[in-house]
């Protein structure tokens, strides 16, 4: 008590700038490691086992992957194959949200009266939960009561049972997913358009650029950060699609709308017993598909960090 600066306190104070960040990081890192980082590796581990979630795990080596991919004298898992192709459809068609979002953003980027309310109302679908979007669209598609068929009937164009038809159901769900996703891309582009340099636009106008050429050569390059984020969130959203499928068709009709994320859930927590090992193998495949994109995203962000320094 007599010394004004005790020994241990001075050691902390001498290294304060070196120690403080770690003290601030520990709780966040601990939580994140426990719930996000470690489970990834645990899932790899479980995928090499047969496990019902309760009893002992039995090691089965790569048997699950062989069954999934049809290595050896067995056929590829049909459900896996369907899910995989559906995932590809999701990925490709979901990207339509980006040009559609840009289109609506260009349409709304004006300063007429009340435009702010229009912008928020256009953005509205993104705020609603996917569960409700799924319900809203499954009622919209209903063969008898649905508005879609009421409209088609009005124009004498027959009727469709979109979610009941295995060839159309996946596209019907993707269309429902595009609704909020387009809204998201729209808001990204509206923000981006706000920041477009007016002097460059004026200069380009004096040079006689307008319409498509102006958009392509002057505006789009300046919207690159918005496009990048739209791309990231759309890819991730496409591969994460689960809620809509679960709500709208529950994988049906005849399993035609399954995607990997849904098939994994179905296997792991199915009513015929929990096949967590097989489920984890599906999740691992999905993870590695996603990893390709994640590495690309991180690489782009990392390059920017380097430039910023």
């Amino acid at each position: 008590m007599s010394t004004p600066v005790p020994q241990n306190r001075s050691r902390y104070r001498r290294n304060e700038i070196a120690i403080t960040p770690w003290l601030f990081l520990i709780p966040g890192i601990a939580f994140f490691a426990l719930y996000v980082i470690m489970p990834i590796f645990q899932s790899f581990w479980i995928s090499f086992h047969e496990w019902d979630g309760l009893g002992e795990k039995t090691y089965v080596g790569t048997a699950h992957y062989e069954r999934l991919l049809g290595i050896g004298d067995q056929n590829m898992d049909r459900k896996f194959e369907v899910s995989f192709w559906n995932n590809l459809k999701w990925l490709v068609l979901y990207l339509l949200a980006i040009p559609m979002g840009l289109f609506i953003a260009l349409f709304l980027n004006q300063t007429v009266r009340g435009i702010r309310i229009y912008k928020s109302l256009f953005f509205f679908p993104f705020v609603i939960s996917q569960v409700v979007v799924g319900l809203v669209f499954s009622w919209f598609y209903l063969p008898r009561e649905g508005l879609l068929n009421a409209i088609l009937g009005f124009f004498n164009m027959g009727s469709l049972n979109i979610l009941g038809d295995p060839t159309m159901a996946t596209y019907g769900i993707i269309a429902a997913g595009l609704w909020p996703q387009t809204a998201y891309c729209m808001i990204l582009y509206l923000t981006g358009l706000n920041a477009v340099d007016p002097e460059q636009v004026e200069a380009a106008r004096l040079d006689g650029a307008k319409g498509w050429r102006m958009l392509w050569y002057v505006i789009l390059p300046q919207l690159k950060p918005a496009t990048f984020i739209a791309f990231v969130v759309t890819i991730i959203g496409a591969l994460r699609s689960f809620d809509l499928i679960s709500i709208m068709t529950n994988g049906g009709p005849f399993g035609s709308t399954r995607v990997l994320s849904f098939y994994m859930f179905e296997e792991s927590l199915s009513e015929f017993g929990f096949r967590m090992g097989y489920g984890s193998a599906i999740a691992t495949v999905l993870f590695f598909i996603m990893l390709g994109f994640i590495v690309y995203f991180l690489y782009s962000m990392w390059r920017e960090e380097k430039e910023a320094r």
């Binding site: 966040g28 994140f32 426990l34 719930y35 996000v36 980082i37 470690m38 489970p39 990834i40 645990q42 899932s43 479980i46 979630g53 991730i236 591969l239 994460r240 689960f242 990997l260 994320s261 994994m264 859930f265 792991s268 967590m276 489920g279 984890s280 599906i282 999740a283 691992t284 999905l286 993870f287 996603m290 994109f293 994640i294 995203f297 991180l298 962000m301 990392w302």
Partner: peptide, 21 residues
């Protein structure tokens, strides 16, 4: 970057261990 990367992973890769935990 660990925080960003973890944010992008599919939920399904976490599902079984997180449920177990």
């Amino acid at each position: 970057f660990m925080f960003i990367a973890g944010n992008f992973v599919p939920f399904q890769i976490l599902m079984v261990p997180v449920r177990d935990l």
